[in-house]
């Protein structure tokens, strides 16, 4: 099962946050990064939340879900510091733009939310082959009043990917079944 959503093409940052010192950093995103990261040069989940809220990723200028920010940082956080440096931020920015485009393409009526039916299609189009029951269970977890917002959609994508990785690593024969010992089950599942 592939996860094309993760390697999605960068949407590019089209926002006016000029910054950085001329000549020092060519990347237009760097100025933006340093403005958010502050003095420590690292972005925490809270800083990411502020940033994504300001960029209005969640729509309607609602605060972007902090839990989703944590999940995203966890996904890219290779040194397990709980924060992100510039390379990770850049990667995340590309990924999240890819997700946003994907989300907008499923959100046909541009309401800023997708319904469970649209979500089913979205998850299948990412390459996951799931039964309607499993799909229902997942979609239900991430919907509020029958709708899925962008931040919940992202949380769902990240979670699905992490859990699939965990499973795949234990599916020795690649036959779709895996064995878990209790300790391992609790620990790996909790660590996502």
């Amino acid at each position: 099962m592939s996860f094309p959503g993760y390697g999605a093409p960068a949407g590019g940052y089209a926002g006016g946050f000029p910054g950085g010192f001329p000549g020092q950093q060519q990347d237009p995103l760097f100025g933006y990064f340093s403005a958010i990261a502050g003095q420590d040069g690292q972005i925490s989940a809270e800083e990411l939340q502020v940033c994504l809220t300001q960029a209005n990723f969640s729509g309607g200028y609602k605060p972007f879900n902090l839990e989703t920010c944590r999940l995203m940082i966890g996904m890219l956080d290779r040194d397990m510091s709980g924060t992100m440096g510039f390379p990770e931020f850049k990667e995340l920015w590309a990924v999240i733009n890819g997700w946003k485009q994907h989300f907008m393409s499923i959100d046909k009526d541009r309401s800023g939310t997708v319904d469970p039916q649209e979500m089913h299609q979205a998850v299948s189009s990412m390459g996951y082959r799931l039964s309607p029951q499993a799909m229902n269970c997942i979609v239900k977890r991430y919907s509020t009043q029958g709708k899925i917002t962008f931040d919940d959609y992202v949380a769902c994508c990240v979670k699905l990917r992490a859990l699939t990785d965990i499973f795949r690593r234990r599916d020795q024969g690649q036959n779709g079944t895996a064995s878990f010992q209790y300790d391992d089950f609790i620990q790996c599942t909790m660590s996502t």
Binding site: A134, C137, K159, L163, Y182, T189
Partner: peptide, 16 residues
């Protein structure tokens, strides 16, 4: 103390 589950079972078990 051991379980054997399919991919979907695993997802349905833990997703909620």
């Amino acid at each position: 103390g051991w379980i054997q589950v399919s991919y979907e079972q695993y997802l349905s078990m833990v997703f909620n």
